[in-house]
């Protein structure tokens, strides 16, 4: 309530031409940033709407979403549901800028067409830039990353989420849509096999079996899967098939390794039974011998 009052007062003051330097005796913006701020969408709300009185300096990242959220509650709500939440990932200013925020639909905006994701997510960006989506999406002017991944409420990119996004632009009977389905199918395959292998490995560990080497193969398989998911963004079927097949092979070798561990254990137990057979036979013979000696 008080903040809304402050904003109104500041709006009035701002209309009269007051700048941040006038209103804020302490920490103020540099010349270039000040210019950017006066060109931004927040010009009229001034400094104190965000930099609360008494706390004029930098806003901590942990607190920032709440501050933006006071005026942008819907986006804040969505953001708290996302994987970027909890201060570890990106916060508002990482995508929208801070003092230079523009309307997102304008090319001057940092978050224009959500291409900003590539600033941190370099792997996907690298492949995306080589693929048909880059030019295609540019031509139609739709959002890039956010078309499939969403923006504020971003979740971990599961197959389910991403596959359902294809239909947003590609009708179901088009070769593009079919390709997406095919790729989705390939990925579902390797993802499920990988989960199965990881679960079986975890079972072995619970049984107290040492799985050092097998864990390394799992790490390799996970690495291959990650690479496959990065390559996906380039939509090059040759590359995608190659990485998927690589992941599949590594996962298969993990499954083989697990089988061989279980086989070894079974073999050892059989060996133990045989050994006990020989031992018991010898003990019986010795007992008989002793009894026989007693007789003579």
């Amino acid at each position: 309530m008080i903040r809304r009052l402050n904003i109104s007062i500041l709006l009035l003051l701002g209309l009269w031409g007051f700048s941040c330097e006038d209103l804020f005796a302490l920490a103020s913006l540099e010349e270039s940033e000040n210019t950017a701020f006066t060109a931004s969408v927040h010009e009229l709300i001034g400094c104190e709407s965000c930099h609360l009185p008494g706390k004029p300096d930098k806003i901590s990242r942990a607190v920032l979403p709440q501050i933006c959220g006071d005026c942008h509650p819907k986006q804040h709500q969505e953001f708290t549901e996302s994987v970027h939440w909890s201060g570890k990932g990106a916060v508002c200013i990482d995508c929208h800028g801070n003092h230079d925020i523009r309307l997102v639909r304008k090319p001057e905006s940092k978050a224009y067409r959500s291409l900003v994701c590539g600033t941190c997510h370099l792997g996907p960006k690298e492949h995306f830039d080589l693929g048909p989506h880059k030019a295609g999406m540019e031509k139609t002017g739709v959002l890039a990353c956010a078309s499939c991944h969403g923006n504020h409420s971003i979740q971990s990119p599961t197959l389910e989420i991403v596959s359902s996004a294809c239909a947003g632009c590609h009708p179901k009977d088009t070769p593009e849509f079919q390709m997406g389905q095919e790729v989705g199918g390939l990925f579902t395959g390797i993802r499920d096999t990988l989960s199965l292998a990881a679960a079986r490995l975890s079972d072995l560990q619970d049984q107290g079996i040492s799985i050092r080497k097998e864990e390394q193969i799992l790490e390799d398989a996970r690495g291959a899967f990650t690479r496959a998911r990065l390559v996906w963004h380039g939509l090059d079927m040759v590359n995608i098939r190659a990485e998927v097949s690589n992941t599949g092979e590594t996962t298969q070798s993990l499954l083989n390794a697990i089988s061989s561990v279980l086989d070894d254990r079974r073999l050892r137990k059989i060996g133990l039974v045989v050994v006990w057979g020989i031992i018991l036979a010898n003990i019986i013979l010795l007992l008989l011998k002793k009894k026989n000696l007693g007789r003579s």
């Binding site: 020989i278 031992i279 036979a281 013979l285 010795l286």
Partner: peptide
């Protein structure tokens, strides 16, 4: 016994 020992 001899055989058993050899087996061992």
């Amino acid at each position: 016994l001899g055989l058993g020992s050899i087996a061992s």
